[in-house]
């Protein structure tokens, strides 16, 4: 199985190093770059990593829109958000912008490598509760559609 390349971009120094130490010893996963700011994060896209672990705080709209930028600069990269005790709305917004999953800081030890492997394989990493919210959001958008093409 080929190695999964990962970038970790996190403004939280402790969480960044926690991710690093969890991934360092993991076979089949290689961290190719890290970043501490949005600018650094966007620069790391030159590595075209398969997986981008991104601090949710870096996706704030009053700053640069990190998710669309990363997706534009590195279209094959899949983004997983690192969330603190983040509000569901912001995670939802991140997913609507194209992130493929999210992980609470408390879940890193248990699920980080699992989530990376799942998302790299084309799956997503979201909780059931979040799936419900995604469906609601989808239904809202659909309802606003005029959609003449759909029966």
């Amino acid at each position: 199985m080929p190695t999964i390349t990962v970038v970790v971009a996190d403004s939280d120094k402790r969480r960044l190093s926690a991710c690093m130490s969890l991934l360092r010893s993991t076979r089949g996963i290689k961290v190719v770059a890290t970043g501490r700011s949005v600018r650094e994060a966007v620069e790391t896209t030159r590595h075209q990593p398969q997986i981008f672990l991104l601090d949710l705080k870096m996706t704030r709209t009053n700053d640069a829109p990190a998710i669309p930028l990363i997706r534009t600069k590195s279209p094959k990269t899949q983004i997983i958000l690192l969330t603190g005790n983040a509000s569901g709305a912001r995670v939802l917004n991140g997913i609507a912008q194209g992130a493929r999953g999210y992980l609470d800081a408390k879940m890193l030890r248990r699920f980080l490598t699992k989530a990376i492997r799942a998302v790299a394989a084309g799956e997503s990493w979201v909780s059931r509760a979040m799936v419900g919210k995604l469906i609601d959001q989808l239904a809202r958008l659909m309802a606003q559609e005029t959609s003449p093409g759909r029966a």
Partner: peptide, 25 residues
Amino acid sequence: KGEVWVGRKVISHLLDTLVSLTEQH
């Protein structure tokens, strides 16, 4: 309990649909 039960592939497709609809919007 009020949650939703779907397979992983459907969830991924759901995400794709949501992202493209959001962009269209």
